[in-house]
Design a protein around this nucleic acid. Structure first.
Lengths: 350, 350
DNA sequence: TTGTATGCGTTATCAA
DNA sequence: TTGATAACGCATACAA
């Protein structure tokens, strides 16, 4: 009386996804052979391969990713978690990362954490559960739990966008502190004595903290009191940058140069300055960081720090690829970030 | 002599991912119970649940996504394929889309197709193989094969960023043709007789084509010969926009107003105009499309078409959610796009 | 070169 | 409330 416990097929109208078995049946071979045609074609005879591929096409077969991961224990998928997709800060680097991966036949999954460590932790879990073979992470700041998880699972990962001698983890990036110090020195060279900083949230963001330290370093070296630096913390959006500048303009002494944590913030600050009738750079100087496209299209064009986006992305991919292949990568790589002077930085008003 | 074919555990140092079975063993229950604790906690006794959850935490257990998808046949994952991540055109809409999904406990996977239909087709396959329960797609243009695949697999999908009465598929967006016509009318109102268009590639991009048609509609209505419209097709980047303007300025008659396919292109055009010593809008008018952030930060600020990014994103999520829940959605939704006048459009030079 | 058989980690059905 | 156990779709060791 019991119905044979076979997979029902044919008469149910809801089109099920074709499986290996379907293809095998249609082409009159075993599932193993079909699998081989897909993964290791060279080992199967020209003739049967043709027949199988024909069936694959006819059925619109595509392998079930989960099943494949389950059986093969690797996915040829890497993951990247970036703080935000809302602006272009990470776009170019990610693009380079992804191109390099594609060249090596691996697929990229991207998630964004909105600069929130707990969310990032979830994203990491999710990507790992989805079978990510390796991960790209931005910056060192995250909970010990997260790192424990990564270690326990033996997931290769690389930290990008930073280079910090104090951290042992493999990373690829530039020294944010040094880079910002370079820029601050340039600002001081123009005679500014009273500086302001529009920064991202400092907590949970080592890049932002290091940039702040870089400014302080420069001030100290020039005999200025670093505690005089006016700091506003805000989110990375244009309107926040504008607001932040307005706030800063109320402080005493009013800064004659405002350094911004990135170009987006600087664009906002520029907007606010214009709105308040301030000329840049005659009345106030404003600098950016990152050198993304908008740095050139705003006017005046931003003096900013050029960050090696593409090199970081491509380099990160290479590191990760090497790790995944079992080579042991021991050296972090430090890239150079350089100041690019355009028009938004001028001499201090007298 | 044969070793028992059991899963080796314990003595191998490479920390394997803990499985349901590991958790079960540690908490002295069956795997079924552990599974229930995770998916349907209410049905298991308080006491055992506590013990199980303790083990879960201790082991750092996280369910294997592939296995789960395989067994449960749904993933609570939706996919979105957008043409590009390189600029912010889709960022805001995607953000809204994702927020709405998150609110409903579903995860978003994003892929970008670089405006290439074959690549998009691959991405769709990949997302479906990864278990995406539903898909967000941009625009109607894609191969019949792609649509066949979607139908065959019964994957719910919605087309966003467009509303086209001629297409039967469920979509949410605005009428690109109408929107661009509105803008073109505004341009003509300013006395311009000679228009140029910097467009994205027209092939495979119905949005771009409809925008072109919108301009032609407006010209016809005003008694202008639509074939006189100077068209340049290019990629969506700032530098391409700049190049394209340079090209257009060589045409005869030289356009006095150049409409751009989007704000990124317009920003580039603005840059080139400045470089050539042309004042905008006194010497030449330039308009954008999309109303993304850069529209406001360039100077002069762009006259452009404001697109309901957030509403499209959130609305698309709601449609897809409804479809996934088996409700049948029959109506496309049309949203409004409106012209926003800022400073880059002025009267035609006399 | 091809086929058979097994296991991957879950969920879900059925009994207990 | 819990425990066995049969799928799920695929890759691969082993046999033929």
């Amino acid at each position: 009386m019991n119905a044979p416990s076979q997979r029902n097929r044919g008469q149910d109208k809801a089109a099920e996804s074709p499986t290996l078995e379907d293809v095998a049946e249609r082409s009159g071979v075993s599932t193993a052979t079909v699998s081989r045609c897909l993964n290791n074609p060279s080992v199967v005879s020209e003739k049967t391969r043709a027949r199988v591929m024909e069936a694959v096409k006819a059925l619109g077969y595509a392998p079930n990713f989960g099943a494949r991961a389950l059986a093969a224990k690797r996915t040829n998928t890497f993951g990247a978690i970036i703080p935000t997709m809302e602006n272009a800060i990470f776009a170019r680097g990610l693009q380079a990362f992804q191109e390099e991966l594609e060249r090596n036949g691996i697929t990229l999954l991207v998630a964004s954490s909105s600069y929130r460590p707990e969310l990032e932790d979830k994203q990491i879990q999710s990507l790992v559960a989805r079978g990510a073979d390796a991960l790209l992470l931005i910056g060192h700041d995250r909970t010990p739990d997260t790192y424990d998880f990564l270690e326990k699972r033996q997931i290769p990962y690389v930290i990008a966008w930073v280079h910090d001698d104090n951290e042992a983890r493999i990373s690829i990036g530039f020294d944010n502190r040094k880079a910002m110090k370079l820029l601050a020195e340039r600002v001081l060279d123009h005679g500014h004595q009273s500086l302001g900083l529009i920064s991202a949230q400092l907590e949970g963001n080592d890049r932002a903290r290091h940039r702040l330290e870089g400014i302080r370093d420069a001030m100290k070296e020039r005999g200025l009191d670093p505690s005089k630096l006016q700091i506003t913390e805000t989110q990375y959006t244009i309107s926040c940058g504008a607001e932040a500048l307005a706030t800063l303009l109320h402080s005493d002494p009013k800064p004659t140069a405002v350094l911004c944590g990135n170009d987006v913030l600087a664009a906002g600050a520029l907007l606010e300055a214009r709105k308040q009738g301030l000329r840049v750079p005659q009345d106030i100087s404003i600098t950016g960081f990152d050198d993304i496209e908008i740095a050139e299209i705003v006017s005046p064009a931003l003096t900013t720090v050029h960050v090696p986006h593409s090199n970081m992305g491509a380099g990160a991919a290479k590191l990760l690829l090497a790790m995944r292949n079992g080579e042991d990568v021991e050296q972090s790589v430090e890239l150079e970030a350089t100041v690019v002077e355009r028009d938004s930085l001028g001499n201090a008003p007298t």
